[in-house]
Simulated assay, not measured.
Amino acid sequence: MPETMLAGRLDLRSGRFAVEEVPVPEPGPGQVRVRVRAAGICLSDVHLVDGELKPAFARDGKVTLGHEVAGVVDVLGPDVPAPWAAGQRVLLQAGERCGECGGCVRHEPCRAVRTRGVDYDGGWAEYALANHHTLVPVPDGLPFEQAAIIPDAVSTPWAAITTTGRVRPGRPAGVWGVGGLGAHAVQLLRLAGAAPIVAVDPLEGARRRALEFGADVVLDAGAVDVRERILEATGGSGLDLALDTAGVSAVRDQAVRCLGRGGRLVLVGIAPGPLTLADSAALIFREQQVLGHYGSAPGHVDELVALARLGRLDLGRSVSGTLPLAEAAVGVERLRKKDGDPVRLILVP
């Protein structure tokens, strides 16, 4: 067993990101060490490297990035219960309860969830530590590259659609931004029975991808008749559910204007700028809602693994390419520039 390993580390004080040699971690009580086989590069990682996002709960000056992680259990720490054992294929939940807040003490939802690869060390490394309750078994037929992206890239839009957005079968839904989150949102809306599904994106390649993932109608966000085209596609009713997965402030007002009575806009993509709506009175009169959404619950990941295992969810189109861990900075730059218009780039240690 080597004493050191490669890890993609972000210095939270200087903002410098580099792949470095660090000690291989040893699992503590209740923890396992996982040999990482695949780790996704998310736009949130780019925002962390750029300094647009700041960890809320990080306790150290540096953090290993990576919240989309899959691999093989390597070593069990003390007090890890059965059935976990070395050699098991697993993915890691993207975060965990803090264990300290009033919600955790009373066995209620945690009020300060810690995010892997943001608040504590993640999976852009050859080995990663995980508390045993954040492990999810991965079926043999599901490749590690696809399993890794289920927490966040797939589970975040799934939770936004099914829980926050309260999707209804046979009702129209729209997705603004068909990148890593939006492409899966289109696919998952179709799985959930939304109809018709409208995808809005300024990039022609993204609109083509939306059709491949199951959209019924694709529109250029820069067109002057987006609202009219959506009303036409929905028989004049407007959208029951709209998802902003791009995190672009300008499209949110456009999305609200495309909602029908009682429609809901769910903000999934993170936008640091202000939220402005041109006509808030219409929002009130039409009893519409704007809802914030972040991440997913453990049960959402379990649902998606089951859907993938049963062949209901195909994530094969989601992996746009793989890179060795040593080239993590290259992957970040490719995603920042949208080089090749990727859905997800995967680091392979």
Rank of each mutant, 00 (worst) to 15 (best):
G8R: 04
R9Q: 15
D11L: 00
D11A: 10
R13I: 10
F17Q: 04
P23Q: 11
G28V: 00
G28S: 06
P29S: 11
V36D: 02
A38F: 07
A39Y: 05
L43Y: 15
L43A: 07
D45G: 08
H47D: 10
L48E: 06
P55H: 13
A56C: 10
A58G: 01
G66D: 05
G71K: 00
V72A: 04
P83A: 06
A85L: 07
G87T: 03
Q88L: 13
L91K: 12
Q93S: 14
C98L: 10
C101K: 04
C104E: 07
V118L: 01
D119K: 05
Y120K: 11
D121Q: 01
G141P: 08
A148F: 05
T163F: 02
T163A: 14
R171W: 08
P172M: 05
G174N: 03
V186R: 02
Q187G: 09
V198N: 11
A199D: 12
E204F: 09
A206H: 13
A210Y: 10
A210S: 07
E212H: 14
G214E: 05
A215E: 09
A215F: 02
E228Q: 15
I230F: 06
L231W: 05
E232L: 13
A233C: 08
G236F: 05
G238M: 01
D244K: 09
D244H: 06
V251Y: 14
L267I: 08
V268R: 13
G269I: 04
I270Y: 15
P274N: 05
I284R: 14
I284G: 14
R286N: 10
V290N: 12
A297H: 11
P298R: 07
H300W: 11
H300Q: 13
D302A: 14
L310Q: 10
D314F: 06
V319H: 07
A328D: 08
L335E: 06
G340V: 09
V343F: 13
R344P: 01
R344C: 00
